[in-house]
Every structure is written in structure tokens, then in C-alpha cells.
Simulated scan of single mutants.
Amino acid sequence: MTDAAPPEQPRNPLHGLTLEAIVTALADHYGWEGLGERIPVRCFNVDPSVGSSLRFLRKTPWAREKVESLYLFMLREERRAGRG
């Protein structure tokens, strides 16, 4: 097999999303203050911006995991609200 196709990721809601899109969606949904309450890191609490957040999250795997988990939680909340 000569094709080096990327592994399939069926039903992975993060597949194809950039970290920037995730941070932007969370900031739009919760606001920077709400985001900083849920994930208490400096980049969300002190002069927050998408750029500073991306720089921090790209260097900090544990924080990135928390952001991705919160994004998935937000998607579940939105799905439930849409069905209610």
C-alpha cells in the first residue's frame, strides 16, 4: 500500500478544527471572563486575546487538553439545548 492516508477519525468533532477556531468559539460562547473561570490560566484572565492564548496553548499540552475538553462539553450543551 503506497498511500499514506491520514487515519480515519469517524465522529471526532475536533477533526479538521484549528486551535484558533476552538478558542474563538469558546470565547464567543463563554466570554473571556467565563473562559478564565472555567480554565484558570493567565492567557484567559490577564489581557486575553486569541493570539496570546494560542501561543500559550501550543506550548502547554495540559492546558490545550482542558480547552479541547471544554469545547466538547460546550458542543454537548448546545446539542441538548437544541433538543429541549
Rank of each mutant, 00 (worst) to 15 (best):
M1H: 05
A4N: 02
P6G: 03
P7M: 07
P7Q: 09
P7S: 07
E8L: 14
E8V: 14
E8Q: 13
E8C: 11
E8Y: 10
Q9F: 12
Q9V: 13
Q9S: 15
P10M: 03
P10D: 00
P10K: 03
R11W: 04
R11Y: 08
L14R: 00
L14S: 01
L14G: 00
L14M: 04
H15R: 03
H15P: 01
G16E: 02
G16V: 01
G16A: 05
T18A: 07
T18C: 00
L19K: 02
L19G: 06
E20D: 14
A21M: 10
I22Y: 10
I22G: 04
V23Y: 01
V23C: 04
V23T: 00
V23W: 05
T24K: 02
T24N: 06
A25R: 08
L26Q: 05
L26T: 10
A27H: 02
A27M: 08
D28S: 15
H29R: 09
H29I: 04
W32F: 12
W32T: 00
W32Q: 07
E33V: 13
E37W: 14
R38D: 06
R38M: 09
I39Y: 04
I39Q: 02
I39F: 04
P40L: 10
R42D: 09
C43Y: 05
C43S: 10
N45T: 15
N45H: 15
P48Q: 04
S49I: 01
S49G: 12
V50D: 13
V50E: 13
G51L: 08
S52Y: 02
S53Q: 02
S53V: 00
L54N: 09
L54D: 06
L54W: 02
L54G: 06
R55E: 13
R55V: 15
F56M: 10
F56P: 02
L57Q: 12
K59C: 11
K59V: 12
W62Q: 08
A63Q: 11
R64A: 11
R64V: 09
R64G: 06
E65R: 12
E65Q: 10
K66R: 14
V67I: 12
S69C: 15
F73C: 15
M74D: 02
M74L: 00
E77K: 04
E78M: 05
E78G: 04
E78Y: 08
R79M: 14
R79I: 13
R80V: 15
R80A: 07
G82D: 08
G82S: 08
R83H: 03
G84P: 05
